Amino acid sequence: MAWNEPGGGNSNDQDPWGGRRGGGRQGPPDLDEALRKLQDNLNSLFGGRKRSGGDGGAGKGGGVGLLAIGFGLLAALWLYSAVYVVDEQEQAVILRFGKYYETVGPGLNLYFPPIDRKFQDNVTRERAYTKQGQMLTEDENIIEVPLTVQYRVSNLQEFVLNVDQPEISLQHATDSALRHVVGSTSMDQVLTEGREQMAGEVKERLQRFLDTYKTGITVTQVNIQSAAAPREVQEAFDDVIRAREDEQREKNQAEAYANGVIPEARGQAQRIVEDANGYREEVVARAQGEADRFSRLVAEYRKAPDVTRERLYLETMQEMLSNTSKVLVTGEQGQNNLLYLPLDKMIDSRAPAASAVAPSAQAGAAEPASRATVDLQRDLRSRESR
């Protein structure tokens, strides 16, 4: 029989809602009574006083269950925050009680907050920042120099622990290194071809500063862009640059002219030297030949004086008469002398003489040998007259 059927049970039995049936009363459960029981359970859980008339065992069991649920939620949240993943390009530095504990590589890892603190960052990514400022050069000119610095974190432990704000320190060190290099360089070098050398010097000095501070940063590249003068004096700087370009152009033209004239003059000088050497060798050889010829002629004359004398006389007369344009024909006893001018021969001999003129130096070289021959002939005639 159901509990609420008439006559189905003892009037002292309780219904499922905790109330007693009395006087044949039937109806829905009492909501106020259920709310009171829930309030008693919450009070017992948080240390409050329990209402009188409630079930103490039921309140105690409900408080323990809620407490276990709360601890379970807290443990799940802690575990969720304690487990972390480090990528291939990252590293993590763990501090335990504020002191360095370890550096963690890629993979799934666990740490224990709040006693541990974790600093995780990318150690392979190239980072960059741009800076521009007015600098004073070595020759006391003000110019604006823009540059870009590329860097990466090479030591995460030093990057996290040694310097409070390492990237701000990097910017300050860059400013110091750039001003030092620009201050020791002339304006021409900064504006023209000296930028690459300046970039290397800035990189070297900047890396030395960062290593001294132990920032854990490695500078990979420093790019100095085109420097320019301040806007207030830009026109004057442009005039100076144009004047220097004109100066360089004039120098290039002068060097090109010198490169064309000097080799030509050297060639002419070398040709003159070679001609002089050739002339010297020719004169020496001709003189040696004439001397040898004269020596042989003397030897022949000693063997046959009459024949040699006659031959020398005929050769001399032939040489003399072949070089003159006048012919003298004499009669007997010096009478009826006739001067004959062969005009046709004179005209024919003039053209070859004009086209092939012998150098005066060669004629001068042959003169000593001819003079020796004439002296020998004169000596022979004097002997005949005796």
Rank of each mutant, 00 (worst) to 15 (best):
T130C: 05
A256M: 02
Q157G: 03
T215Q: 04
T148E: 13
I217V: 13
R127A: 04
D121Y: 05
R179I: 00
S154M: 01
Q221S: 11
Y129M: 10
L170A: 01
Q234H: 07
R117E: 13
F209V: 04
N162L: 02
R231H: 07
A199F: 08
D121I: 00
R179Q: 15
S186Y: 12
Q132Y: 03
Y213L: 15
N122I: 00
N141Y: 13
E144T: 15
F119M: 10
L147F: 05
G260E: 12
T124K: 13
S226I: 06
E255Q: 09
N122A: 06
Q150E: 15
I168G: 06
V145Y: 09
S169D: 12
D188C: 01
H172C: 06
D239T: 08
K251C: 01
K131F: 09
T174D: 01
G194M: 13
V202S: 08
P230W: 03
T212V: 04
K214R: 15
E138H: 11
R205K: 14
V190D: 11
V219R: 03
Q207R: 03
R249F: 10
F209D: 14
F119L: 02
A177T: 09
L210G: 02
F209R: 04
Q253K: 09
A227S: 15
V190T: 10
D188V: 13
R208V: 10
L156W: 04
V153C: 08
G133H: 07
S184Y: 03
R205P: 00
V153I: 11
D175K: 05
V202R: 03
I217Y: 03
A236P: 00
G183H: 14
V145G: 04
A177V: 01
E247D: 14
G216R: 01
D211S: 12
F237L: 07
Q234N: 04
I168L: 14
R205S: 12
R195I: 10
D121G: 01
G183Q: 11
M198V: 10
E140G: 00
Q189M: 15
D116F: 10
T192H: 13
P113A: 11
I143D: 10
L170F: 06
Q221F: 09
A254T: 06
Q248Y: 10
D116S: 09
L147N: 03
T218E: 15
R208C: 01
V163K: 05
M135L: 12
Q225L: 12
S154P: 00
Y151M: 09
T215E: 09
Q171A: 12
R195H: 10
R231K: 08
S184V: 08
R125Y: 09
I115L: 11
Q171M: 12
E126P: 02
N155P: 06
I224P: 01
K251T: 09
T137N: 11
G133L: 12
